[in-house]
Design a protein around this nucleic acid. Structure first.
Lengths: 181, 181
DNA sequence: ATAGTACTAGACAGAACGGTCTAGACACTG
DNA sequence: CAGTGTCTAGACCGTTCTGTCTAGTACTAT
């Protein structure tokens, strides 16, 4: 049925790059297909609408996040899991195309009624679940919610201040709040 | 010269409401002037462009934030200043039109090259300055940067999870990180 | 009374948008 | 060879957007 569709993959990759860096509403269909090197008809053969492409971009980003979570969970103990996670965030924040958390950015644009916003809820759950597994606690526990605060503050702070040190500050905060709990 | 311009004020108020709740790109000029009860020409007599209206909206929000900061700084000691601040955030997060931090939302939409984004930098500085005064520390100190992380995490977390408890979690984190430092 | 100012109502233009459609190239499979 | 599915190139449509323009109204100061 769907053996391998390079056009679709190139579309998602181009959408990821442009939607992430420029914003979703600020990026037009024509720019996406030009970046992907793909005809407009190929877009609408693979996706019913621009919103579907947005959802596909977010689902792809969610999948990458899940893999990141899984890698961090291979560490033996809670502090090294948290350290591994925030180290990876810090590394990402030094890239020149860093623009914060893609899900936070999308949440600011989409609004709660948008169909693609269900992926944002999925990410939120996946993040809480990751932190819960990382520190062996319940996903709704205050300790996990504090770690989510650290994550959000880290990425957004590093974005608006153009300063990856903020991620290190948030990591300190995360480690401290875990060791205290 | 400019004794009192109700049309301009109504425009900024309408823009604040709509841009904040729906997003900037998702809100058209026609919707703003309809909400303001104002003719389109009045908009362009007071603002050169939509971007100017966006900037005016953000400057107005920045001014309100500065007043909030000043009120919190009347508290006698650092913990009560921080508690006062996060209590006000928590109160705001329970409102049904709560949509997170207006500057964070605008940052996700505008991109760094937008002229209005200088107001975002101003807010960032004002926030760091407030925390620095609140805990009697330098605006670039790690303690202040950790508090900024708490602020961002509080508002964004409360937004995407629709749960004002997140603000309380962030407040705990903020108080703890200050008392430890 | 008259001039100036701030406003309203809405038509209008130009561009950009999302999305559809036709025509045809290429590769693979029977 | 014929047929099928995926692709490209780009014209095209209707809508929506920002921004301009005309015309006329209400108020105020001199």
């Amino acid at each position: 049925m769907s053996p391998a569709r390079p056009a679709r993959d190139r579309l998602v990759a181009a959408a990821a790059d442009l939607f992430y860096r420029q914003g979703i509403h600020a990026t037009g269909i024509d720019e996406v297909i030009a970046r992907a090197g793909v005809a407009k008809a190929s877009l609408y053969n693979n996706f019913a609408s621009k919103d579907e492409l947005v959802a596909a971009y977010l689902r792809d980003a969610l999948e990458r996040s899940r893999r990141l979570f899984a890698e961090c969970l291979t560490e033996p103990d809670p502090p090294s899991r948290l350290r591994s996670f925030f180290d990876r965030l810090a590394a990402g924040a030094t890239r020149d195309d860093f623009a914060g958390c893609p899900f936070a950015n999308a949440a600011a644009e989409l609004g709660p009624r948008d169909p693609a916003s269900s992926v944002l809820v999925d990410f939120d759950r996946a993040l809480a679940d990751f932190f819960a597994r990382a520190i062996d606690d319940a996903p709704d526990s205050p300790a996990v919610r504090r770690l989510v605060v650290c994550y959000v503050g880290a990425l957004h702070g590093a974005k608006v201040r153009h300063d990856p040190r903020v991620v290190a500050d948030a990591a300190d905060l995360a480690l401290a709040t875990w060791s205290r709990a």
